[in-house]
Write a protein that binds this DNA or RNA. Structure first.
Lengths: 185, 185
DNA sequence: CGATCGGTTGATATGAATCAACGTGCGTGG
DNA sequence: CCACGCACGTTGATTCATATCAACCGATCG
């Protein structure tokens, strides 16, 4: 159904996803505090995906009409919006390349790297330890794999001393090694 | 390098793609006459992908500064641009779902359906026969498969009487059957 | 007329999925 | 406080979809 409003995640983690009728799920984006659910929804009343929180979360609602009015009045707000759109688009393109052309190891390494990178630009990180509330099922649904395969890859990453991950918090033990796997580009 | 201009495909077919250093290629979008190379490039000087034509093609160049000026002056042009951005974004999301969660058969059926759908809205089609200049390698690079696997799937589609395809032109013999494979959503 | 390009085909290999069992922590209700 | 159920992760065995390798074919073109 059409929706009058547009949402921003204020606190916590969430994902934007699509579920097919037979149960398959694809996560389109991982949302962190400060993210619009999608810039597309500013101009599109009927969303083509759903949003679900992974942690306690808060979001705020903005009336689309208000937002547009403010955009018209404030010309440099437009530039900011454009920037958000571009970032969202290139993130989608990056994920496309991952899903189309990269191996499971590469995809998961890159997911970890990209999320920690985004995290680092927003919150204070102490000694390479990041909050990481994604379940393995969620990771699987981002990178197009099975949760059991994700489990095996993560196990390998742990055993080779690349990462530590327990209780929703992650530390990258060997950033160089992880980048060697993920940063083919 | 930064680029002052922005391009529109006027005639022919092209693809926007990324090539990884080891040769792997992922096509991000199939461009038809009338398409912007990418709406992202209006606000972003350094493109993150390359474009290559599949047929004879013509494109026209527009200065980014001019375009922005025109956009400022003409408020309902902004709406048109927004629409293009949204369409581009949802197309990317659709492909993401394909690559992450759908089988080879589904992906290829959907690719055929989506391209013919776009084609139908722009040119006159006679008796379900479409121009289709993609090579199997190109199809493979869109849907994240190998050209030889694409060949096998196409063979199956031909043998089961779904499509005919030869000499760069395609006809959908059994649209219902093709949609039954591809339209799980 | 050989060379190249795109496609086809068969044999084989392999990455990831599937199926199934088990473990472990945790919240909840008795 | 215990017992149960549930969610999540792990592990092993097996299967399956797709990749890889290699040969060949037909059309096109210089």
């Amino acid at each position: 159904m059409p929706n009058e409003d547009v949402y921003i995640l204020c606190y916590g983690w969430a994902v934007g996803y699509v579920r097919l009728p037979d149960g398959r799920r694809q996560i389109l984006s991982i949302l962190l505090a400060g993210d619009l659910f999608s810039s597309k929804l500013i101009f599109k009343e009927t969303p083509h995906f759903a949003v679900q929180s992974l942690t306690d979360a808060r979001f705020s609602r903005i009336s689309r009409a208000d937002l547009k009015a403010r955009l018209d009045r404030n010309p440099n707000a437009l530039g900011a919006l454009a920037k958000v759109c571009v970032e969202e688009g290139t993130a989608a393109d990056d994920l496309l390349i991952d899903l189309g052309r990269r191996s499971a190891d590469e995809r998961i390494a890159r997911l970890i790297l990209s999320v920690t990178e985004r995290l680092r630009s927003r919150v204070v990180i102490r000694e390479e330890r990041y909050p990481f509330p994604l379940r393995q099922q969620d990771i699987a649904d981002v990178v197009g794999l099975t949760p059991v395969h994700v489990s095996r890859v993560i196990k390998k990453f742990r055993q080779t001393g690349l990462i530590e991950w327990a209780g929703g918090s992650l530390t990258i033990v060997d950033p160089v090694g992880l980048r060697r796997i993920g940063l083919v580009d």
